[in-house]
Amino acid sequence: MLNYQFDWSIITSGKYFDWLVAGLITTLKLSAISIVLAFVLGLVIAVMRMAHNKPVRWFAHAYLEFFRNTPLLVQIFFWYFGSYKILPAVVNDWLVSTNFEFAAAVIALTIYTSAFIAEDIRSGILSIPKEQMEASRSAGFSYLRSMQYIILPQAVRITIPPLVNQFLNLAKNSSLAMTIGVMEMTYQARQVESYTFKGFEAFTAATVVYLVLSILITTLVNTYNEKVLNLHKAA
């Protein structure tokens, strides 16, 4: 270890640099797509979890328990290897011709994270005074429309801190996608390491990328949050 020769140039230029950049872009794409989908799905599951209709409520409850309490890695493998077995051949052929690893990773990250997001949003919804629902119902909005225009916008706003956490978790968890061959940041760092034996440099680069990504997400959400919240703060 003491004889280890640091060589940062390997990762700052040339082929290996290109690999790392490709990994970075894949990680960004994977995280961004999954965050948006997980947020939307989380909203839907949260509303279903509070529905008056019992089967709907139970379905959402089972969904939450199931996906929060099984390891993400198993879920990634499930969508990658498992769904492959139960889908018709035509669909499979089409999937293989597309970027199936990426799709499986998006599905797994989305569903897994949506379960956590749904729970956070549900507690947000519960903290909105019931009079808000009464006011919107008496204005003539249906239950779902009331959720859409009155309750969820308020619930999401107070749920922002836990939501940021879930987004960060998702971005970090996206590194597990390498296990099914998605060529994201960690995968590429590993590749660079095995070609160059410069593991320290490669994984330092990956670490910095995840750190910057986390800071980016936090800043983005907080900026949005402050802009919106400042608008209706007490004078």
Binding site: E131, Q132, E134, A135, P153, Q154, H232
Partner: peptide, 10 residues
Amino acid sequence: FQQFNLYPHL
């Protein structure tokens, strides 16, 4: 309503 119940986010 007695407590107005305006939508605080609007």
